[in-house]
Amino acid sequence: MSKKTAKAETVRGPLDGQPETENRPASKQEAAESGAQAAADFADSEEFTYAIADRTVAFVLDESLYKKDAVFGTAYLFIEKCYVYLTQPEDGQIGVRLRTRGEADQPALEEMAGEFVNELLNQMIRHSVGESTMRIREYYMARAFFATDTQTTIDDLLAELDDEELEEAPLEIAVPWEESDA
């Protein structure tokens, strides 16, 4: 199985001392340059390493970065597309092996690995949003199912209607037409 490394390209924006930043205050510009440098360092240092063999691409994920639930969510989607086998090479790691159902060349295998990691990030975001909005969802569910305030309000309204003396209405709007004719 051959080993490949895909390195992210370093994308440098206008924060690298381009004319757009010349008029910024020094502190903001320094901060922006520092951020851009950090991003560039990250892009230079972070590598996605995978191994490719016949119809197979394999890589290892760090469990401190990718939650197991997110890996499961991604794997569940890929079970439809290919054969998925998970291992645990070391504590805190999840090994992923994807094998195509039919013949596949190297670019196709690389693309499949990339798709898996992209979907993994998508699942991570879903998980994160789900966690951050969990309490508000629970609150609304609890209000919808268990609140008694609504019932009390309806009871109050009905009681209020009962108390009204509709017969004394000058226009007799509340009196049925059969009775008013009679």
Partner: peptide
């Protein structure tokens, strides 16, 4: 072999979600 591994994984994920 691959289908067996897929089956075991899918069943495990479903069981994990039910448990959660």
């Amino acid at each position: 072999v691959d289908s067996f591994a897929n089956y075991a994984l899918e069943a495990s994920i479903v069981a994990n979600r039910k448990e959660a």
